[in-house]
Design a protein around this nucleic acid. Structure first.
Lengths: 343, 343
DNA sequence: TTCTCTACTGTGAACGCTCACAGAGCAGCG
DNA sequence: CGCTGCTCTGTGAGCGTTCACAGTAGAGAA
């Protein structure tokens, strides 16, 4: 073993060493490395053997210097950090994206924009070309970061439909409206007639669409819309708790509630419990996401599953396609009703 | 504005352009960029003005190619993904590390090693020199990844003391034993005498140390160790729930319990509630971490705060020092008792 | 045979930066 | 006055790769 690496780091082999070892030229090694077209089988074999023998790994900096690509992508989170700390959905998404990118040998750079200064720094970093594209997680509308990146021509894929951005930005989302319809229909199917809703923030597509689904189903069932049965939250647990209290105050006869996120639903369960309402006997509760929060809740939360694994892999697919020169695209994925004890 | 960037991406200015614009040589621009030593004030000013005018940003690939550094670090998670999805501590740590690194303009590459294949891929990636160092989160002992990286001479800082690795590896940890002592003393101070414990995994330093602290305080209070009051979990919520059930079965007279993580404590609260025990009246409960889980629990969880912000900033500090050639170091940070309703 | 076409290979020139070196200018000192 | 030492500046080389180009060899067609 000539490459024994005990302790200090020594100079790694270059493409030149491999070429010499294989008895070919740099060009041939490079061709083998990049797809192997126009290389004779014997040369390819010799090169691959030399690579194994020397332990050669391509120097990405040298490659990037000439190709202009960085072969890395950014994962940009512009949510307030409290949400990131609280909501396990981010972790699932993050895991899914690293995994999908790993299949292409592309590292994920994590960028969290909390303060205004951080936003500026990150935008500068990205527009400088240090990443090939960006996976964006930022539900609120009018996010200046997204607009700046789009304007700078940086390939971009959002998680969830960005409100207020031109149609030229790619996004991948679950079918929020359809999911909400499924859940509310389920509640009505249980015989409930006074169904409340705790929406997400109404400047997010998730907030708007899930509320729309709720209203559609009530209408199709011939039930009117009672404004006292509608309150909105911000996806946080605490806002769910507060929302449930307002609902109970305004509509004490509520017998079911659709909550636009599992985390808020946890808060709703806590508030109902404190108010002495039994779940599901007195009030049936349905959530949205099917996150860890849904399993951890007691009773287990009936909810709408968002297909996070597919969302993340589609985000990566669409982003890489765009980096490769294809046009922006949007993907809507189906949801699924998951029944547990709460409804 | 010569650099208007409407739509497509154009060729960014190089150090050469800046030099020409400022009327100096490449070397001078480079010196300004790297600390500004041996540069006259007038030249520095001219260069900075030229940088602003051209919108120049250094090409990191070109720099890395020659310096041999990548100016990036990896954040490596070798926990099972379920823990990553469930435990908000990871998010806090991740946020803290990105933030601390951002101050040095160093991006964080997120690496999650779930499967064996992923581990191999990631180790190859790291040992190839694609990152300057690694922030390691992996509590279990005998982690082969850590050992491989250490052997390859990659700068490494672990979060929590790695068991079974030579003393040559840096780590940053909270004072687990002391924290456990504080909490158990608090429980005894409330007059409780039958104090149970749900430990962390006993192949992790956190698991071992927190249990040791528990035993120390019982001994100093003249209370014997009752094995029926000791069960161990794996930091997951579910294991807390199971642990509490075993405790109740083995020691029905238990009047307090120290749980080695907040997440497990949530499970303990659920189990106690199901068993009809009131918290804190019948059983006082104390956790460890002071994570979101502690606040979200009902009743609010009395717990030991781990100083995550300092842990992450120290990890980054120690890692960068090591990248700069300094020797490995270990840092132990003090914890703090946070009182809430559960005890 | 000769010419064309294809498959394959090697070579020089970048990519944008840092580093080492040499040299200029100037001050202080013997 | 010359020497030393300091601050400051420009220049050439080279980091490890890809890319464009030129060139060779062999197969098949004219």
């Amino acid at each position: 073993m000539t490459m024994s690496n005990t302790g200090g780091r020594r100079k790694p082999p270059t493409i030149h060493d491999v070429a010499r070892e294989a008895g070919v030229s740099r060009g041939t090694v490079s061709r083998v490395l990049n797809g192997g077209h126009y290389v004779s089988p014997s040369a390819a074999e010799a090169v691959n053997a030399a690579i194994r023998r020397t332990g050669y790994v391509v120097n990405r900096h040298a490659r990037s210097l000439i190709t202009g690509r960085s072969d890395s992508v950014g994962f940009l989170l512009t949510e307030p950090q409290e949400r990131f700390f609280e909501d396990p959905n981010f972790n699932v998404l993050l895991r899914g994206c690293t995994q999908a990118l790993a299949a292409h040998d592309i590292p994920l750079l994590l960028m969290i924009a909390g303060t205004q200064a951080e936003r500026r720094r990150i935008v500068r970093y990205i527009t400088a070309g240090h990443v090939d594209g960006v996976l964006l997680v930022s539900s609120h509308s009018g996010d200046p970061v997204a607009e700046e990146l789009r304007a700078a021509g940086v390939p971009l894929v959002a998680c969830g439909k960005p409100i207020g951005l031109g149609s030229k930005v790619s996004y991948v989302a679950a079918d929020d409206r359809d999911g909400a319809r499924d859940l509310v229909r389920h509640l009505l199917g249980l015989g409930r007639r006074r169904v409340g809703v705790v929406t997400g923030p109404l400047d997010t597509p998730g907030g708007v669409e899930r509320l729309a689904g709720y209203k559609e189903v009530l209408a199709e069932a011939g039930l009117g819309i009672d404004e006292r049965l509608i309150v909105s939250g911000d996806y946080s647990r605490a806002s769910g708790e507060a929302g449930a209290e307002r609902l109970l105050a305004g509509a004490p006869d509520m017998d079911a509630v659709f909550v636009a996120s599992d985390l808020m639903a946890q808060g709703v369960l806590a508030a109902l419990h404190r108010a002495g309402r039994r779940v599901p006997q007195d009030v049936a509760v349905g959530g949205f996401d099917d996150s860890q929060a849904a399993v951890a809740a007691s009773p287990g939360l009936t909810t709408i599953r968002q297909p996070w694994d597919r969302i993340s892999s589609e985000m990566v697919r669409v982003l890489l396609a765009q980096v490769g020169g294809e046009d922006p695209a949007t993907v809507i994925l189906p949801t699924e009703l998951v029944k547990r004890e709460s409804a």
